[in-house]
Design a protein around this nucleic acid. Structure first.
Length: 304
DNA sequence: AAGACGAAAGTGGTTGA
DNA sequence: TCAACAACTTTCGTCTT
């Protein structure tokens, strides 16, 4: 069965695995957006790719603290029925194992559990989770966790992984999911990326559009318009130094206005995690520099 | 009454001496 | 290390629809 775009009935759909979105190539509609909405578990979505994901055996993965290769000496429950001698041996072994299990391993075990929890809360794709785990592992090996809480480093690593994979989540979202203060997440994020020499492209406001638009239930047309506006403003050098979410939300607000799908500044501000004031500021700049006034005026006349 | 607008003061982070 | 600075937020009063 071939899916069709509900907007334009095109069958030309593009499945972006990285972002977990299905996008119509004709009109830009996000047909399915598995990251945030509509309660669909991404694993169940597409039987074909689900099949590909299924594996036999234990893959070597960064999301397990010892990469899935270790063994553990059991706990007290395993002692039942053992000879006294065996018991002694058991205790010796366990003590020994305790000594060799370094701080790194114990830390990783806890941290990766936390990482998985946060990642699944945010419905992040597996690739991002793996990346975050890799980053975290590196951070631990370089001793960057010392003096910082494990949770905050996990959050920082996840944020960095999101950025690298162009699956932007705001600091607020990371903060909410991890229970770490926003500024702390930002701080550790900057710290670990600097220390590990991870280069991160400045996030593109356009990356936020599909997600925000989808939350606001805006049409594909509006989305395309918003992206267009962002491109225009980038050319007009309105974007440098500004928060990407602010730009994205203002563009979306204007685009909605132009297409007669008005949302209040409050609504847009909420999904984008910025304030109305910021939207207003960006919005004003957009009108000034991009001569969108004409389009707005046309609209107003139409309405009258 | 709700939304849009804008001024003023505050916050956290960056930069440059 | 500190002060200046830009971006953004919070708060609040006023205007518009």
């Amino acid at each position: 069965m071939v899916k069709k775009c509900p907007e334009c009935s095109s069958e030309n759909l593009f499945y972006n695995k990285e972002k977990g979105e299905v996008i119509c190539k004709e009109c830009g509609l996000v047909v399915e957006e598995k990251m945030i909405d509509f309660g669909q578990d991404w694993r169940e979505f597409d039987p074909e790719s689900a099949e590909k994901r299924r594996r036999t055996g234990a893959p070597i993965t960064y999301t397990q603290y010892d990469q899935g290769l270790g063994t553990e000496v059991g706990r007290k429950a395993d002692l039942y029925g053992l000879e006294k001698r065996s018991k002694n041996k058991f205790f010796r072994l366990r003590k020994w194992q305790y000594r060799i299990s370094t701080a790194i391993e114990r830390n990783l075990k806890l941290a990766l559990a936390e990482l998985k929890r946060v990642s699944s809360y945010l419905k992040l794709p597996k690739s991002v989770e793996e990346e975050a785990a890799r980053i975290y592992t590196l951070a631990v090996q370089r001793g960057l966790v010392r003096g910082r809480s494990m949770e905050s480093v996990v959050a920082g690593a996840l944020y960095a992984a999101c950025r690298r994979h162009e699956v932007p989540r705001t600091l607020e979202e990371l903060s909410e999911a991890s229970g770490i203060e926003k500024k702390e997440v930002g701080r550790t994020y900057r710290f670990i990326t600097r220390e590990l020499n991870i280069t991160i492209l400045p996030s593109n406001p356009g990356d936020y559009i599909p997600r925000f638009a989808s939350s606001l239930r805006l049409s594909a047309k509006t989305q395309s318009k918003a992206v267009e506006i962002i491109e225009m403003s980038q050319k007009a050098e309105l974007t440098s130094g500004r928060g990407p979410t602010g730009i994205a939300s203002a563009a979306l607000y204007v685009a909605a206005l132009i297409n007669g799908e008005k949302r209040t500044q409050r609504e847009v501000a909420d999904v984008a995690g910025v304030t109305e004031v910021t939207i207003r500021n960006r919005y004003k700049e957009l009108l000034d520099k991009l001569s969108l006034e004409k389009e707005i005026k046309k609209l107003k006349k139409k309405i009258k």
